[in-house]
Design a protein around this nucleic acid. Sequence first.
DNA 1: CGCGGGTTTGATGATGCTCAAGCCCGGTGG
DNA 2: CCACCGGGCTTGAGCATCATCAAACCCGCG
Lengths: 194, 194
Amino acid sequence: MHEILFNYIESNSEILLTSQEKEIIKQCFIPKKIRKHQYFLQEGDVCKTTAFIIKGAMRQYSVDDKGVEHIIRLSLEYWWVSDRESIVSQKPSKYYIDAWEDTEVLQASREDMATKIMTIPAVIETFKTMDNNHATALQNRINAAISFTAEQRYEDLLKTYPEFVQRFPQHIIASYLGITKETLSRIRKKGAKQ
Amino acid sequence: MHEILFNYIESNSEILLTSQEKEIIKQCFIPKKIRKHQYFLQEGDVCKTTAFIIKGAMRQYSVDDKGVEHIIRLSLEYWWVSDRESIVSQKPSKYYIDAWEDTEVLQASREDMATKIMTIPAVIETFKTMDNNHATALQNRINAAISFTAEQRYEDLLKTYPEFVQRFPQHIIASYLGITKETLSRIRKKGAKQ
DNA sequence: CGCGGGTTTGATGATGCTCAAGCCCGGTGG
DNA sequence: CCACCGGGCTTGAGCATCATCAAACCCGCG
């Protein structure tokens, strides 16, 4: 199981992991199963761990005053999951994170991450790359949110993350796009004709 | 002028800068003036430098097929400016960056940043913090974009970045919020009554 | 068969956009 | 000193997009 994480790290950095480093990773990252609909984090809780998805699908979302969920982020295999704001500040999170499918993760505590994991050169490299990718993805999503129509945002999603549409139901996709499920349904209907 | 950057770095990390490190920073970061409306980066260009604003105000935006500008990001004193996607990938940028006020920056090349600046412990610390702040700010802005009404987004902006409203005209703020200047005008009118 | 989650469809309405005009105000030049 | 100009802001009327609400449908599963 940890092999997957080793491969992931090595294929995302120029540096290989030593066997000692692998041992450290093995000790810090605890395997955990999160069943469908089970929470990884609830609003108001302080996020204490960082998880790497081995198998499954998760979502991060806020809930507004009317009780409507708004999907901030969707994550699949080989993605990192945690609420950065909360884990860094150690303040209660504004968001929920739960599993959409039965999910297996490798989970490390904030302390282990800081003191043990983030001293490994290959890991530092990997996180630097991830950080860059993540920041540009967020920026592009903001651009889409403020400059695209609902239809354009959906088309953009189809190109950028076709997996999402396979793995998540339409009402989740709609929420991710910032529209209602009815609107998405109509957009798809229109698109199918052409 | 470089003193400002030294202070900024030291106050954002637990570590102080040695005089050698200060010397390196001085050599890598070149002062530059960018006049109002002058470009720092144009769509299609590859971003080659990272800038730190000493004085002034800048904006990053995309332009849609109708020629309308959409403000992705606004930056003031002591903010970092560059198009991360382009500077990392060395591919043409999708965005424009220009000065909204006459601006003074300290500018470092991609190479100097990677080989010289990012080896300084205090700088690494500082960027780690900035990265965390930036990522959480983007996430919260996405949350606002998909779950708030125009009015709520404006109120949120007033709380989070009151400086923006002082420094940028309303049509820029409107674009940043993903609405038209007319809509923002009406929101403000409504808000003034209460 | 019936239930639950997901999707579709329709009718209606709110929110925010478009277009067009006018206003306000500081700066410039005659 | 006044006229005019430009940038920014406001206002109004009409319209498009998307949300809301309610109902029906679809289908896999116990």
